[in-house]
Design a protein around this nucleic acid. Structure first.
Lengths: 216, 216
DNA sequence: CGGCCCCTTGAAGACTATCAAGACTTGTGG
DNA sequence: CCACAAGTCTTGATAGTCTTCAAGGGGCCG
């Protein structure tokens, strides 16, 4: 479920100092809540305040791909078109800034810097998508998992006890593998001393150099 | 090799009537010529006039993915960033319109419609990328090849004797398969009566309904 | 006409998926 | 606070799809 709250109720510095905050409203999303679905009319652009969001696409028979995860500070649904071509769901309890597309478009038409920033963010999305196509099309299971762990570490800024907010199934659907292969690969990396798992959702990268090598 | 020609030497209606034409210059690219490489400084935006272009990413050991093909009328290298994150090469002898990024950015800052059009095109790229991630992550070989053939038919507007300008290796690198699997799958589709091959580079879709079903 | 490149086909093997069962976690209600 | 239930994760055995290795066929251009 999505619930709406007055943005001034929250006062984390990252929100208050954010130039985007006045344009939107703060929204809460429970774990696994749908933020929007494929086919929905496009109305808002989102920025993750805390939590994590997954972008998914489905096939008719239920096969699923997660095209990306979005962590705090990152935007999503920044694309054009009047209808969403993918769904967005909260991976964990999350807080989002929801900005009406109209407000952004209006501001951007007068503000060259904003316009350019939007452009840059859209380009970054495409970069990430292309990098991920390389992973999905050409990397083996170990390389995929290593890439995923290093990317998460880079984005969260943590090497030690790094939280993985998403389930094994989410990771599998992101990496184009099955849940069993993800689990087995993580176990293998742990046996090899490259990572240490503290429960299923916390990882420490104990041998970064080797992971970088495995990344391919 | 890339060679430059004066744009006024060409007079195909699609070029003359194109509002983009006056912004750029016409460039020729020989088969397999590199248009730009990963790491190159970003200077131009391109529109395919005729021929076909492939966008590629490489791994250190030579594994390659083609993230997309661009056919006449389509733009590429429309993204932000000062350095290219992928390479572009001509699949076949091609003619391109090369537009300095500066000219586009300058014009867009004054022209809301142009700005919005750029936005739309960037969004379309991301849509295609996400659809392709679904293919690479979750479809089997037959589904991948069927999807590819239907997409090419939709973009060229041809069902019969549709030319495939790219090699089997290019198709394989686009679909995340090997050249042998692509060849075998095409042969199988032909045996099943879904397509007819006239030489390796021409296909007729003889059973569209079945291909649509195979697409997944 | 010959050579080269591209494509096709065959056989064997590897990697990941599938099927199956058990262990651990987490949350809930008694 | 404990016990149970449901969901999640791990592990094992087997199977299947695609890759790899290998060789031959076909078309295009000089």
């Amino acid at each position: 479920m999505l619930s709406y709250a007055v943005s001034t109720n929250l006062r984390a510095p990252s929100i208050v100092n954010d130039p985007w905050t006045p344009l939107g409203i703060i929204v809460s999303a429970a774990r696994n809540a749908e933020i929007f679905a494929e086919g929905d009319h496009v109305e808002k652009v989102y920025k993750v305040i805390h939590g994590a969001v997954r972008i998914t696409k489905l096939m008719a028979d239920g096969r699923r791909i997660i095209t990306g995860f979005h962590l705090p500070g990152e935007f999503f649904a920044l694309e054009s078109g009047s209808v969403h071509r993918f769904s967005a769901e909260a991976v964990a309890e999350s807080t989002l800034l929801a900005i009406p597309r109209k407000a952004i478009v209006a501001k951007a038409s007068q503000d060259g810097a904003l316009s350019s920033q939007l452009w840059t963010m859209a380009g970054a999305s495409l970069d990430r998508a292309q990098e991920h196509m390389l992973l999905l099309g050409r990397k083996n299971a170990v390389e995929r998992v290593a890439t995923f762990l290093l990317d998460m570490a880079a984005r969260t800024g943590t090497d030690i006890d790094m939280p993985l907010p998403m389930s094994r199934q989410d990771i599998a659907d992101f990496l184009g593998l099955t849940i069993e292969t993800v689990s087995r690969t993580l176990t293998q990396l742990e046996r090899d001393g490259d990572i240490a798992l503290s429960g299923a959702r916390k990882v420490t990268l104990t041998n970064r150099k080797r992971l970088l090598h495995l990344e391919g």
